[in-house]
């Protein structure tokens, strides 16, 4: 009787453990997206991806001319209940423009990071990447990224009043030449 009882207890414990194990592996949201080459795939070991997102990527001006100073704002929202250190990587075209590391975002808050940029003519695309450094062996994990494009008008060449003024000057000087002999004659006579 005693032996049968222990067997039942053992079966229950085994089934319970198996159920826990199954539940653990079937919980959604445990998949991490490690940055390529940064760490081995250990997604099963991570409980849940922190809910931190780039809520906005914007430019201080919409009508931009070449050479204008433009402020690029990246707003990050931390929806978690704990503070988090994040990295922001701003990419201009294909190249890194600026990188901010270990910026703390308070729990539940929204923080805006600003980058100064001297506008260059053409269609310019900026991509803000949000990453977080997790302890080894996970390493850097990308949480979010967002891209925006801005059309920068080329710098105008010259001022219209300058050639106009020069034309008027030429006209006046040419006409004025007609008066020179009369003036010279008066000066001589005096």
């Amino acid at each position: 009787m005693m032996r049968e009882g222990w067997q039942k207890v053992g079966t229950v414990v085994t089934l319970t453990l198996l159920t826990f194990a199954l539940l653990l592996f079937s919980v959604p949201g445990t998949q991490w997206t490690p940055v390529e080459g940064s760490s081995p795939d250990i997604s099963q070991d991570i409980p849940e991806e922190p809910d931190i997102k780039i809520s906005e990527l914007s430019f201080s001006e919409t009508e931009v001319r070449e050479g204008d100073e433009v402020i690029i704002s990246v707003t990050v929202k931390n929806n978690e209940t704990y503070d988090m250190d994040i990295n922001i990587n701003l990419i201009w075209g294909d190249e890194e423009f600026e990188r901010l590391e270990n910026e703390t975002i308070d729990a539940g808050s929204e923080t805006t990071f600003e980058f100064e940029w001297e506008a260059q003519a053409g269609r310019q695309t900026f991509t803000a990447g949000l990453t977080v450094d997790l302890p080894e062996p996970i390493g850097i994990v990308e949480l979010d990224h967002r891209s925006e494009t801005i059309e920068v008008n080329p710098e105008p060449v010259g001022d219209i009043y300058y050639p106009l003024a020069i034309l008027v000057l030429i006209f006046l000087v040419v006409i004025g030449t007609v008066l020179v002999p009369s003036v010279l004659a008066r000066v001589k006579n005096r």
Binding site: I160, P163, L164, I166, L167, I170
Partner: peptide
Amino acid sequence: FFKSYFVALI
């Protein structure tokens, strides 16, 4: 366009 015109006149 007008700028170009004035330059052409000069």
